[in-house]
Write a protein that binds this DNA or RNA. Structure first.
Lengths: 197, 197
DNA sequence: AGACGCATGTAAGGTGTTACATGATTCT
DNA sequence: AGAATCATGTAACACCTTACATGCGTCT
């Protein structure tokens, strides 16, 4: 049972899903591919943590809709109460930003543009998901046992994170375009964020 | 040349460092261990992208201080101008948050406490790094070619990110403690953030 | 006509983590 | 007395990504 296996159980604990669905949903905040998911689902089924129903479709490939079992829920319970590993973060863009001081303005501008465009695309994608979720549940997230509460919490944070990413790009551009040496102490990102309101 | 190899070159482009230093610095925003770094440094040296000087020490193990070569800088230049891969994110805590609606209040509270404590520890660590950086350079980050400009940009973002993480924990607790069904539409994380000021 | 979405799966190769290995000094 | 810091390195295993494989329907 690796982390992704628990992740699959976590998602299946709220609704029955196919491997394909799981891939799409997980990708909002957990980098993975279908090739990693399908073998793990087969393992979970062998261990009796999930069961599946084969749904025959026409025009589309048949699909397996997975559901969590009582065994699966019991394993989930143990996992959620045990210590949590640190997050794995590997953002190539950050490695590039680290060394930008050695490059010319044109190269830097191009990089910041690339980064901002990426954040903007993510914002559109995650805002859409959040809106869909809100309308599907009728915006009732008023208790910790509300339907899809966890999904709601995470989407709210991700949307906020990418918005801050966009502001960060703007802040960097502002710093780069300041040629005077005055106000050296004022270049604080959080002050910049507050000044926007 | 994988992403971490470029990362090592990126860090070495701003100052000479040992493998151990690189591990510590990278860990602020790139999950890795020394076991991954040392073999890559050896490869970079074979390819003539870096050179090292052996420094003999007493009381401590000898160390190899690596410097980037002109070849290395040329490779960096090509890399920074080429398309950037998507960030890899794998946060076990988010997988746990996803399924919290199925658990009792005590389990949820424990999990949110664990998460907030983690963010708080990170805040202390990264704030210290930022303060050290500021004092070492004399707070002069007024141009994009300023010394350690990239490092400054990233630390500013990370500090902001973890602060938002802490507020997110508080927001979740607030939602969980609301038992009434009133004001269902008001539970927006960004509105919550704005209300703090 | 070609790309994309739906939907599942395997194989190969690259990447990453954990454990093993050493050892003096400093902190708790 | 035991843990942490500094400092490097290897080996085994686990993990993850890319490519291969299939195939119909819809969109551009």
């Amino acid at each position: 049972m690796n982390k992704l296996s628990y992740g699959l159980l976590s998602f299946l604990s709220t609704e029955p899903l196919t491997g394909y669905d799981l891939m799409l949903k997980l990708n909002h905040f957990w980098s993975t591919t279908h090739s990693a998911i399908y073998p793990l689902l087969a393992e979970l089924e062998e261990k009796n943590y999930v069961t599946f129903t084969l749904i025959e479709q026409n025009g589309k490939p048949d699909k397996k809709v997975y559901e969590i079992t009582d065994n699966g829920r019991s394993v989930l319970k143990d996992w959620i109460s045990s210590p949590t590993d640190e997050a794995v973060r590997k953002d190539e863009m950050m490695l590039k930003i680290y060394c930008i001081q050695g490059f010319d303005k044109a190269t830097i501008d191009k990089l910041i543009d690339e980064m901002e465009n990426r954040y903007k695309k993510q914002l559109i994608k995650h805002t859409e998901s959040l809106e869909k979720l809100k309308s599907s549940v009728g915006n009732k997230f008023n208790s910790c046992n509300a339907q899809r509460f966890g999904s709601y919490l995470i989407l709210q944070k991700i949307v906020c994170d990418v918005k801050i990413g966009i502001e960060w790009c703007k802040w960097i551009r502002m710093l780069c375009n300041k040629n005077d040496g005055i106000n050296c102490l004022d270049h604080n990102f959080q002050d910049f964020l507050k000044s926007l309101e």
